[in-house]
């Protein structure tokens, strides 16, 4: 491996994947040996609705260059309508981030169902590419934003 390649920016992306859809899709992508960057770091949660906006902010604060929240397609949430709640919350965090002058594209909400292994891999690859172009997040250098 040459040095330049080694130094290439690899964005750290923390993913919150719901147990019933997006985690299942991740398993399916892996089983099919579809490749995506190892810098995607998964956390399995039961439903997208359990993801407190604090988690997303915390990830960015602690060093992630971006975060993904993956849930079931609208109408398909295992818990009836959790993903609608997640959608509302994400919209709010994004607005707040933007109004504070931060790049709101560093939070991504995606619907990936349990049978969409290929989509999982594609989204992970495409999002990594996007964040690579943007460069490292400056959010992590702000430590005045309060923790827990």
């Amino acid at each position: 491996m040459n040095e330049e390649k080694e130094k290439e920016f690899e964005p750290v992306i923390v993913g919150f994947f719901c147990n019933w859809c997006t985690s299942a899709a991740a398993d399916m992508a892996g089983t099919a040996r579809l490749h995506y960057p190892p810098s995607i770091r998964p956390i399995r949660v039961m439903c997208s609705s359990t993801v407190d906006p604090v988690y997303l902010i915390r990830a960015l604060q602690e060093g992630a260059d971006a975060t993904i929240l993956g849930g079931c397609h609208p109408g398909d949430c295992h818990y009836i309508n959790g993903n609608y709640k997640a959608r509302r919350r994400v919209a709010i965090v994004k607005t707040v981030l933007k109004s504070l002058g931060f790049d709101d594209e560093r939070i991504l909400l995606e619907w990936i169902s349990g049978s969409e292994g290929p989509k999982f891999a594609r989204v992970m690859n495409e999002y990594t590419e996007l964040i690579k172009k943007k460069g490292p997040s400056d959010f992590k250098y702000i430590d005045s934003l309060g923790g827990d």
Binding site: V45, M46, C47, T50, P53, V54, Y55, R58, Y79, K85
Partner: peptide, 24 residues
């Protein structure tokens, strides 16, 4: 599902073994 915990302003309601400090 944990929708309640994400909506709770005081962390009073949590899903057992998926508590906020654990995820953080």
């Amino acid at each position: 599902c944990g929708a309640c915990s994400a909506n709770c302003p005081t962390t009073a309601i949590q899903v057992v073994n998926f508590k906020k400090p654990q995820i953080i």
